[in-house]
Design a protein around this nucleic acid. Structure first.
Lengths: 337, 337
DNA sequence: GTACCAATTGTAAACGCTAACATTGAATCT
DNA sequence: AGATTCAATGTTAGCGTTTACAATTGGTAC
C-alpha cells in the first residue's frame, strides 16, 4: 500500500505511454485506447496506488466536485439539514466544505467568497437578508447557489425552505382553539432572518383572524440564558396562558423558565415548541411542537444545487417550500382546560 | 463589485509590473517591493476585486490551508465537536472539508484518501479500530492526522479523547453507592469503537471493585428504535433497578423505554445518561448524566492538528485525555431510596 | 502502388500561480 | 574611477493535469 507522491508522469514512464494516454484512461475514455495498453496502465496505477492530484485537475478543468455550505450554527436543526446535504453530496460524488457564520452578514459573504476562491462548484447558504447586492451579482454571473431554510426578499435565489408562516400560524390556531388568549410568541430579533419574521407574521395573522388582541411577540436576546431570564420576568408581570417557541434553543429556554417559575403545564400555561426535538415526548407533559423535515430540506437543497451545476439550462429560479406539521402532544391540554 | 475571472497576469499587465511582483504583494512580501508600486498594484487588485486562485496556489505550494474531518454521525455530541473544530480552524485561517461515515471502516479510509487526493493539509478522524495498516502507513509518511474522541489500540495516532473508562465507572460507582444492585449498562455493539468498549470496561471495573455480580451489559442494535424495544423486553423479564446509558441516542431510547414500561424513576429504576444533553434538566425527574466537553475536544483536536501541520518538529505522538464529569440530578434518587 | 481512413498514440501548450535565479541601476566604499 | 553592494524588479521553469492538434500505423479501395 505504498502511497508516495507519484504523478501521472511516473505512470506514463513506467508503462511506456504518454501522459495523454494515462489521462485518457483515468478519465474513462476507454473508447480511444487499446484494450491491452489500458490494462497494462491500470495495473501499474493499481500497483503504485496512484491517485490523480485533484488540484491540478481542478485547475485545468475548471471544476472541482466540491460544494460549499455556509450556515448559521450547528444546533440540531442545522445538523439535520447538513446530514441531508452530506448524504446527497456523497452519493453524487461531491465533497463538502463547511463553514458557520453565526448569522454574521459580513462573515457570510466572506465565507462564500473564500469558497469561490477555492473554486467550489457551487454554494448552499442559509442567508441573512442583507447582502442583496452580493447575491444579485452572483445570480447575474449565474453562479450556482441555493438558499436553504431561509428566504431572501428582493433577491431571487434558488431556495429550499419551510413555510414558516404556516408553522406559527398552526401553533397559534391550535392554542386559540383551545381557548388560550394571552399568548406570547418568543423569538430572537427577527429583522435579519426570514423564518423569524415569518413566524412572527403567521402568529399575527392567526390572531387577527380570530380577533385576539391580548397576545404579543416577545423579542429576546440571543445570548445563552438571556431568553430564560427574560421570560421568567415576563411571567411574573403579565398574565400569560400560552407560549409559542420559534426554534430549537428557545424550546429549552422556555421550558426552563416555566419550570423555574413554578407554573403548571398546561394548566397555567400551554406551550408549543418548534422543530420537534427528539426529546419532545420525554418532558412532562410531552411537548406539542411544530415539526420541520430538516433532513429532507438539506437533501433537496443539495440536489437542486447539483442540478444547477450540471444543467446549464434548468437554471431559472425555483423555490421549494416544505410544509411543517403540528405534532400534538400534551403541553397544551385539551379544550376547556 | 465586478468579479470576472481575472488572473494574476491581468493585474500584472494593468499595473505594468511582472507577475512576480504581484505575487510578492499578494503574499505580503512587502519588504521586497517599492512602496509606490505596492500601492498602485493593491489599488488595481481592489478595483478589479481580484482573488488569487487557490487551486493554483495549492498546486504550486503543496499546501492548501484546508483540513478534512471524517466523523461518524452528526448527533449532538459530534456537532459540538465539529463546532469546536470549525471555530478553531477558521480563527487560524483553515477551511474545513467534512464527511460522515456512519462508522463504516471502509468508507472511513475511502474518505480520508479522497481528502488526501484533494491535498488537504491534514485530517481529523473519529476512527473505528480497523484500518490499522492504513493508519500505520500514514504515520510512517508522517502525514498530519489526529484521532478525535476515539482511541486506536496498536496504532499510535495523535489523539484527543475522553477518559471513557472513568465516565461509566463514575456512573456505576454512583449507582452502587446508592444501593442499586441490578444495573444494566446499555451499549451499541462495542467491538469496533473505543469509547464503547471502554465504557463497558469501566462498568466492569466498578462492579468488580464492589463485588457486584448481579449487573450486566446489554448490547443493543443500532437501528433506531431497536434499543427501546429490546429494553422494554428486558425490563419485563428481569429485575433491573438501574440503567446506564452510553451515548446521546441511547439516552432517548432508554427514557422512552422506561416511560412506556410504566416504571417510576428513580423509585423503580435509576437512570444515568451519557453526554449530558441540553434537555437533561427538563425531563422528569431531571437526568443525572455524564458530561463530556465536546466543544473543547474539537478545539483541541484542531489545534493539535494545526500544530502537526506547521511544526515538523513537535511531531511525536501525543494523547490528550479529557475527564468526564458526573452531573448529579434526580434520576437516581438518594441513598436509601 | 497510391490515396485514404480509422484506430491508436503522442507533442506541446495551457490552467494560474510561485520561486530560484538573473538583471538593472544607483549608491557606497576604497 | 572601479569595485562592491543593495534594492527593486523581471525571466523562466515548473507544480500535475487536460486537450487541441499531429503523427504513425496498418488496412482497404481502386
Amino acid at each position: 500500500m505504498k502511497m508516495e507522491k507519484i504523478t501521472i508522469s511516473d505512470i506514463a514512464r513506467l508503462s511506456n505511454v504518454s501522459k495523454t494516454t494515462v489521462s485518457r484512461i483515468i478519465n474513462g475514455n476507454y473508447g480511444k485506447v487499446n484494450k491491452d495498453t489500458k490494462e497494462r496502465v491500470l495495473r501499474i496505477i493499481e500497483e503504485l496506488n496512484y491517485q490523480p492530484n485533484t488540484l491540478a485537475q481542478g485547475l485545468k478543468q475548471k471544476t472541482t466536485n466540491v460544494i460549499g455550505i455556509v450556515l448559521s450554527k450547528l444546533h440540531p436543526f442545522w445538523s439535520a439539514v447538513l446530514e441531508g446535504v452530506e448524504d446527497s453530496c456523497r452519493s453524487k460524488g461531491y465533497s463538502l466544505m463547511i463553514s458557520n457564520t453565526g448569522d454574521d452578514p459580513e462573515l457570510e459573504v466572506e465565507q462564500i467568497k473564500s469558497f469561490m476562491q477555492r473554486k467550489v462548484d457551487g454554494v448552499i447558504v442559509s442567508p441573512t437578508i442583507h447582502n442583496k447586492a452580493f447575491y444579485e451579482e452572483l445570480i447575474e454571473r449565474s453562479y450556482p447557489i441555493v438558499a436553504v431554510s431561509r428566504k431572501t426578499p428582493n433577491v431571487s435565489l434558488n431556495t429550499v425552505a419551510m413555510n414558516d408562516i404556516k408553522g406559527s400560524w398552526m401553533a397559534t390556531e391550535h392554542l386559540l382553539s383551545l381557548g388560550r388568549e394571552q399568548i406570547m410568541l418568543v423569538v430572537y430579533p427577527p429583522n435579519d432572518i426570514s423564518p423569524r419574521y415569518e413566524r412572527v407574521a403567521g402568529f399575527g395573522m392567526a390572531l387577527k383572524a380570530k380577533g385576539n388582541q391580548q397576545s404579543w411577540v416577545e423579542i429576546v436576546d440571543e445570548k445563552p440564558g438571556m431568553a430564560k431570564q427574560k421570560i421568567i420576568e415576563v411571567l411574573k408581570e403579565k398574565k400569560v396562558d400560552a407560549i409559542i417557541s420559534t426554534n430549537n434553543i428557545l424550546n429549552l429556554e422556555i421550558l426552563k423558565a416555566v419550570k423555574e417559575s413554578g407554573l403548571k403545564v398546561p394548566e397555567d400555561v400551554a406551550i408549543v415548541g418548534y422543530d420537534d426535538p427528539a426529546w419532545a415526548e420525554l418532558v412532562d407533559p410531552p411537548l406539542t411542537s411544530v415539526y420541520q423535515p430538516a433532513y429532507e430540506i438539506g437533501e433537496k437543497a443539495a440536489n437542486r444545487l447539483i442540478e444547477l451545476i450540471k444543467n446549464t439550462n434548468k437554471t431559472e429560479q425555483e423555490t421549494t417550500i416544505f410544509e411543517p406539521k403540528l405534532i400534538i402532544r400534551n403541553s397544551c391540554g385539551e379544550k376547556g382546560d
